[in-house]
Write a protein that binds this DNA or RNA. Structure first.
Lengths: 121, 121
DNA sequence: CGGTATCCTCCGTGATACTG
DNA sequence: CAGTATCACGGAGGATACCG
């Protein structure tokens, strides 16, 4: 219903933000990205990279050497995207602790009492 | 490997951003939110709302009337989260067209030729 | 090295019906 | 009205093996 949905979905990919973040630092090779984003599978990395390339946020450059070398970098659009993303990340870092505490408290109260009218008697 | 991951995951939920956005405008009742976020099921709305409540971004207030009334609003933390989110949304709107075009072009070239060395012969 | 192809599993999500 | 419970499904995502 709203065009920004499709863009917001980009972030839903869980790795996109991390990838853009890494590429903002410098150009990376495929393998380098895999090391940096510990835990991502080749498949997901390829897939996310392709999506970002399709959306014009990432540049893919192939050097037909042996062994093959492929480098990924941010486009201008990608760099512009990195700005609001950085802010979001900053907010995340600043409030991660408070959120963690809040979550903790919620879990503790939730595991014993009911949801709203906590009956302690 | 990085604490911000758990916060970034919040956005992966696809509805969170929209909900925060709606609640930033004003307090909403459950049903009102459902109308505003066309397409969300009761289950997902409840689930996402609960997650946001657990993270301390959203306040849940129950009025034990008949029929029951429940109102959701942003906490201070939630309002602070809305700021970087707004920026991200702004970027989305500003670049939605360009991204759409880029995606289009990519699809067109991708559907006929191979990925890198487009063999048209 | 940088992928693609295949298989398989799990969970996000919707549909439906019931409760307070 | 505002949920919760249960079921059922599709697709996201991981593991592995092979290809250029």
């Amino acid at each position: 219903m709203c065009q920004c949905r499709s863009v917001l979905d980009l972030l839903a990919n869980k790795w996109t933000a991390l990838i853009i973040d890494a590429l903002e630092v410098r150009t990376h090779r495929f393998g380098e990205l895999r090391q940096r984003l510990k835990g991502i599978s080749r498949k997901m990395l390829t897939q996310t990279l392709r999506a970002l390339e399709a959306d014009g946020l990432v540049n893919r450059k192939v050097y037909p050497e042996v062994p093959l070398r492929v480098e990924y970098s941010l486009t201008d659009l990608g760099r512009s995207a990195a700005i609001p993303l950085r802010q979001l990340k900053a907010w995340s870092r600043d409030n991660a602790d408070e959120i963690a505490r809040s979550r903790q408290a919620y879990d503790d109260s939730g595991s014993s009492g009911s949801h709203d009218g906590v009956i302690t008697a």
